[in-house]
Design a protein around this nucleic acid. Structure first.
Length: 612
DNA sequence: ATAGGGTTAG
């Protein structure tokens, strides 16, 4: 064909244009003409080409066949793994190579390693490498420092990012963008905005970083505001990165109408087949409790990756459609998509909901044995949940005691919640005491504790928990429920509402109360503080925030429409019973999203099958 | 005449 350097140039074009198939042809040509024998130059460029184009398999094959690997080969193979969203693999390969082959990182390798650490939140590893980097002869390299800024920003430590940033001699738009993202993600809006104002260089990516950072930092409304301002200024913001972030924001806020609006924007801009955008849409519709819309998006996708499958599986599982989640997992395997750690959290969670203990255990083992994935604390928590829900409390406790992690609050709470359901009072109290000693940080845990103690008639402990909770609520946010009517969203707090429609709400709740009592409802006041008068206990239950929200929803929505309520705490047992009965009385579907799952109340039943 | 750093999904 042509001169060797002409071919090299063509390979570089393939990298730029992301033409892996053309690149592969050039690769074959290089092999035939024997250029590759002259050193790693061609191999490394080809390696990099495969990595950047997402052809990890080809990259690995080439890497394995290379007779002479230099530092650039290692840098390229690390980049390939980072690019394929396998940062742990990069760190694994590096640690193996550094011990077996005494691989000493150069500046290029340092940058890929920090990139990997950022990708999997490997703070400890990153810090060690940072120390090593400072002592190395590359310590002045601005690009590596830039990758460190990104690493600390992604790990939620913007101040550490800033101190590295300050040491950068020539600050370009890349390090500014990373730093702004870091502050936004940490929820430090004013600092992020101040930085943006002071940036000598900013581009659309900087704005994207700010918007997505704020979304991830939970400041979704601020983020939407900034997006609107940008559009008003006439900025060209119709790009999939920003759209994905807006979808994430709608999901976080669980605001279906907002999500639909963004979806329309996506269609208007012609990004409805973008993989990232679709994945975000699946998640958004599931989180906004419109699972059929999520299914529709998933069904229409031409190309699905592991995130698409995982999103729909998790969505199904959270909405109580465990068997469908499991069968989707089978289909995913048939489609040749490899599951990752998140996928397994989803399906083990599904098993735990359907009471499929054996299946869940099998999947957990399969994750380790067949897929070589290391279980995380979250996976063990799922396993604890799986056993505990099926009444195998001892087995669940065994896992907590023997797993290679210190159980956190969520892990204990999972076991505790099943003790309440299974009537295992003694062990429940023991766990509760332990949790109370640890000092729970979650209001939901407190409700659980208070329930356990109330069932065991340990009133002193109950009031201790209540006091703790009151102090937490003062510091944090109190319990509330929102009802989403599309055009408006109303928030209700516990206690008698001061809403302008108070009388109508009270009237309807009273009427419904009378109707369900006719059907055998007896308020379960065991969950309320003991030292109140009986009537006062019932009154407290009556004014739980989700009930006010429900009444308002019933009054204001179209007849027959589903009512969607979001609650920031767990639904109490009594409200759960009441919602089941009311779904029957009004003949509508009532959807409640509590702190971590969905309840679809319909025809007197709930999708969670009374396990939550 | 090779290679590295910033923004998106679970």
């Amino acid at each position: 064909m042509n001169h060797p350097f002409e071919i090299l140039h063509q390979i570089k074009q393939c990298i730029k244009l992301r033409f892996p198939l053309e690149g592969k042809k050039l690769h074959a040509h290089v092999v035939k003409s024997g250029f590759g024998l002259h050193g790693p130059l061609f191999s490394n460029t080809l390696l990099y080409m495969y990595g950047k184009c997402g052809f990890l398999k080809d990259a690995l094959q080439l890497f394995d066949e290379m007779p002479h690997r230099d530092l650039a080969s290692w840098a390229s193979i690390f980049t390939s793994h980072n690019h394929a969203n396998l940062p742990q693999k990069t760190l694994f390969l590096y640690s193996a190579a550094s011990s077996k082959e005494n691989l000493q990182p150069d500046d290029f390798i340092y940058a890929t390693l920090f990139n990997a650490c950022a990708g999997c939140n490997a703070l400890k590893v990153g810090e060690q490498l940072h120390a090593q980097f400072i002592a190395s002869s590359f310590a002045d390299n601005d690009v590596v420092k830039s990758s460190l800024v990104d690493f600390y920003a992604k790990c939620g430590l913007p101040d550490r990012a800033r101190s590295v940033f300050n040491s950068i001699a020539l600050k370009n738009v890349v390090c500014w963008t990373s730093l702004i993202y870091g502050y936004a993600k940490a929820g430090r809006k004013s600092e992020a905005l101040a930085l943006l104002r002071n940036t000598p260089c900013k581009n659309l990516q900087t704005w994207t970083a700010l918007i997505s950072g704020l979304m991830q930092g939970g400041l979704c409304l601020d983020s939407f505001k900034i997006f609107k301002e940008l559009r008003l200024e006439g900025a060209y913001v119709d790009e999939p990165f920003i759209l994905s972030s807006l979808i994430v924001g709608s999901a976080t806020l669980a605001m279906l109408e907002l999500g639909k609006q963004v979806h329309r924007l996506v269609i208007g801009f012609g990004y409805e087949s973008n993989l990232y955008v679709c994945n975000a849409l699946i998640d958004m519709y599931a989180k906004c409790s419109d699972v059929s819309a999520a299914e529709m998006i998933f069904g229409n996708m031409g190309k699905r990756d592991v995130v698409s499958w995982t999103s729909i599986i998790v969505g199904m599982a959270q909405h109580g459609r465990a068997l469908e989640a499991l069968s989707l997992y089978e289909t995913m395997a048939l489609a040749g998509v490899k599951p990752n750690g998140v996928t397994f959290t989803g399906i083990i969670y599904a098993c735990s909901h359907a009471g499929l203990v054996e299946k869940g255990r099998h999947l957990f083992n399969s994750m380790v044995v067949d897929h070589g994935l290391r279980p995380s604390l979250q996976h063990y928590t799922c396993l604890v949940d799986l056993y505990a829900r099926s009444g195998l409390i001892e087995e669940a406790k065994d896992i907590l005691d023997t797993m290679p992690f210190t159980p956190d609050e969520a892990a204990w709470a999972s076991l505790l919640s099943s003790c309440c359901q299974g009537g295992k009072k003694e062990i429940g109290v023991r766990i509760a005491d332990h949790l109370l000693e640890l000092g729970p940080e979650d209001t939901s845990t407190c409700i659980l504790l208070s329930n356990v103690y109330a069932h065991a008639t340990m009133w002193e402990q109950v009031s201790k928990v209540r006091k703790l909770m009151a102090s937490m609520e003062r510091k944090k946010k109190p319990g509330y429920s929102c009802v989403d009517l599309g055009k408006e969203i109303q928030v209700f707090y516990a206690g008698e509402t001061e809403h302008p429609m108070r009388d109508e709400i009270f009237g309807l709740l009273k009427e419904l109360d009378a109707e369900i009592r006719k059907r055998g409802y007896v308020p379960d006041t065991s969950l309320v503080l003991h030292d109140l008068q009986h009537q006062e206990k019932e009154r407290q239950l009556f004014w739980h925030s989700e009930r006010s929200a429900l009444a308002y929803g019933l009054l204001k929505s179209a007849p027959g429409a589903s009512i969607r309520i979001m609650k920031n705490l767990r639904v109490c047992g009594d409200c759960h019973t009441v919602f089941k009965l009311i779904s029957n009385v009004v003949g509508r579907e009532l959807i409640v999203r509590d702190v971590n799952r969905f309840h679809h109340f319909k025809d007197g039943e709930c999708s969670c099958q009374d396990f939550w």
